[in-house]
Design a binder for these strands. Structure first.
Lengths: 182, 182
DNA sequence: GAGCGGAGTGTACGGACGTACGCTTCGGGG
DNA sequence: CCCCGAAGCGTACGTCCGTACACTCCGCTC
């Protein structure tokens, strides 16, 4: 034991390759062979490092959701007033729905898995929970929940539209949902 | 020509089987063989009636999105005041995110395809366009757009939550996003 | 009543897949 | 210097897949 010639980066590179492959071809297009080729590792390495496809996917999406939520927390953490928080939220929406399709695709792929399989639903729940907690740094719990849903919907719709809506529309929606109650 | 012994229901039954199969196993789990078995038709019938997997899926999702949007239009069409429209929207959110996972799963599967493939994105655009037009029966265009996104986000989040949020929260969010501008 | 042509089907081929498993390689202990 | 066991790899097996295509069946025309 402890021979010391393991390659700890190997696992990480494989996960990277999985995420890239999902972006290009979808979860359905992921196979041990393709991942191995993309990561530059032999096929046998797959079964050695991972018990099977599922461990591969679960680990990939765990990493992905962690990354996304970290950005979310960072931006909201930097805000010091509700208005700055609103700006941060608008930035996040437009970042997520911007030219870069990578995060959008991965999110949908994860949601699709989550819709059917509890193990992945757990992942999305953790993600949503952390997002909401970050929003609660600036807004009350009920508002945070509504705002979180709004962010989701705005991002998805904006990304799918032919001509994405203007920032002003996002800003107005955020202002409305976070407006003080009468 | 015109031999008259074609089976026009055959195509429909195959599409039904495709949608059921997607719900059970996901788009990735759809194969000609499984569809044929479920629809009770011979394997050869698949290639006879459809040019390939893609025609199968595209037609299935066309039917699905048409069905969903029809419900949407019907409920909103029945409303005669903005307040009734708000109620209808709340109903729709809770219907979509309720116990029945079928529509949720199909929606995510479609979005996942749409995120990568233009042909499916076209489908979601038509869907979104019709939804928005229905909302515009009761609200101004900008509000309709925001509300449409909110519906999306609320439905998705509510369906993924461990304990789905109360109706009151949905109602409040809708009220806020549709509040008259100052 | 013969036979033609279109509707529908059974089957077989080539390829990609996940995974098991026996093999090689190599650092460290004796 | 030798050998042992862990780390890592190449390959082969069985399964399932999409699709092409030769075939059967049958209503219609003459």
């Amino acid at each position: 034991m402890a021979t010391g010639h393991t390659d700890p980066e190997r696992r990480d590179r494989i996960i990277d390759a999985v995420l890239d492959l999902i972006v290009d071809e979808g979860v359905a297009g992921v196979s041990h062979r393709k991942v191995a080729a993309r990561a530059g590792v032999p096929l046998g390495s797959m079964t050695y490092h991972f018990s099977g496809m599922d461990e591969l996917l679960h680990e990939a999406f765990t990493r992905f959701s962690g990354t996304i939520v970290a950005v979310f927390e960072e931006r909201l953490g930097a805000a010091t007033t509700p208005d700055e928080a609103r700006e941060a939220v608008a930035d996040l929406v437009h970042h997520l729905s911007g030219g870069n399709q990578r995060e959008l695709i991965l999110t949908h792929e994860l949601y699709t898995l989550a819709a059917r399989r509890p193990a992945y639903r757990e992942l999305t729940r953790t993600w949503m929970g952390r997002s909401r907690r970050a929003l609660e740094w600036h807004f009350d719990p009920a508002t945070a929940r509504q705002l979180d849903a709004l962010i989701e919907g705005l991002s998805i719709h904006r990304a799918l539209e032919t001509e994405p809506h203007e920032r002003a529309l996002t800003v107005e929606a955020i202002a409305r949902i976070t407006a003080p109650r009468p």
